[in-house]
Amino acid sequence: MELGLVYALTGAALASLLAGIGSAIGVGLAGRAAAGAVAENPDLFSKVLILQLLPGTQGIYGLLVAFVTLSQTGLLGGNPVAMSNATGLMYLAACLPIAIVGLISAIHQGKTSVASIGVVIKKPDQFGKAMLFPAMVETYAILALLISILAIFAL
């Protein structure tokens, strides 16, 4: 029995699962700091909200990769294509970059966002600079997304 489709689906599931978990942790972490900032100074709401949302993108990238994988394998349209074990494993491997990098980078981005929220509390006019620090972490999530998407489309 060919398990190719099972591997591909596992890849899609991992991409949305791990990247989603990472984002939930990151956004949750930054959210607690943002709530603390707003409790003391409600005027900071819009600034800290942006910083809170930054670690949320990894979850979206995971969803995108899972979506493309489901689409490529025909699972989305309800007509799954027959797939060898090797092809299925390749889909799984293609999903791993965003799954793993998404998980780890979102947590670290959340922590960096918390630190940046600390900067915004003390110096609200330095919001632009403070936002750059967590945005830097995003680079690696984008690179992982790129590799996952390129690999999936190449299959």
């Binding site: 603390g36 900032a37 409790a39």
Partner: peptide, 15 residues
């Protein structure tokens, strides 16, 4: 224990 919320509030108070 997580002190993220409390620390953010304290940051405001430190001002």
């Amino acid at each position: 224990k997580d002190y993220t919320f409390a620390v953010a509030r304290i940051r405001g108070r430190e001002m």
